[in-house]
Simulated assay, not measured.
Amino acid sequence: MKTKTWAALALVFAAALAVYWYESPWLTLWQMQSAAKSGDAASFNAHVDYPRLRESLKGQVSTLLADQMGGSDGNNVGSAIGGLLGMFVADKAIDAFVRPETVMRAMQDGKLLPSLHHRKPSASSPDGTAPPPAGERLQWQTEREGADRFVAYALKPGTPREQATAFVLARQGFADWRLSELRLPQLAR
């Protein structure tokens, strides 16, 4: 009788552990959203791998710059030097721009780049921008890319997924997830 009880307990424990492992990225996403909403940078930072996040953005910007430079004459030395200078400046700008405040704001707004229209400052937000209007609440769509990647798309109502910023969490350890990549919608729109 005791053997069956221990076996049942082990089975329940294993099932609970499997459910926790499977649900852990959603829990991390919720914790990040809560920390961003409350402005708790320390709790938010516990779930972000800033070096990998910066590298992902540098790669996207470099690709964009290379695509733009590809349309020009490849023999033009000035264009090549200008492209390299642009990539250097973009790298430094991303290093300076990707900070807890901007990434937390991106999670609230659904985009990393500030909008082109100005918002009235609000006393409730530390960076002087007002929160999105209540009618513009973000809708989150998620998908798994294998066992080690979890992608959450921040969608405004009526926005197609390909125009949304994607927050990519990478698994580290058993059930610890960190924001390691932001996939920006097409920058050249």
Rank of each mutant, 00 (worst) to 15 (best):
153 Y>A: 15
176 D>V: 13
110 G>Y: 13
179 L>W: 10
22 Y>T: 04
162 E>I: 10
124 S>T: 10
135 G>V: 15
75 N>A: 10
180 S>G: 12
168 V>N: 02
126 P>C: 02
62 S>A: 15
138 L>E: 05
96 A>F: 02
186 Q>V: 06
43 S>D: 05
19 V>D: 01
154 A>S: 10
64 L>R: 07
65 L>A: 12
123 A>W: 12
68 Q>R: 14
148 D>F: 10
86 G>R: 14
79 S>L: 15
59 G>N: 13
92 K>G: 01
57 L>K: 03
77 V>L: 15
11 L>Q: 00
30 W>I: 07
97 F>P: 03
56 S>I: 07
76 N>M: 08
161 R>N: 00
40 D>C: 09
89 V>R: 13
102 T>C: 05
184 L>S: 09
111 K>L: 06
96 A>N: 11
179 L>A: 05
93 A>Q: 15
72 S>K: 14
63 T>Y: 02
121 P>E: 07
75 N>Y: 10
23 E>N: 10
79 S>C: 04
52 R>S: 14
50 Y>V: 04
13 F>E: 06
108 Q>W: 02
21 W>T: 08
166 A>N: 12
6 W>I: 03
181 E>A: 14
106 A>R: 09
162 E>Y: 13
147 A>M: 15
125 S>Q: 13
184 L>H: 06
61 V>R: 04
47 H>G: 06
126 P>D: 08
90 A>L: 05
187 L>D: 04
63 T>K: 12
37 K>E: 07
118 H>G: 06
28 T>V: 07
178 R>G: 01
51 P>K: 05
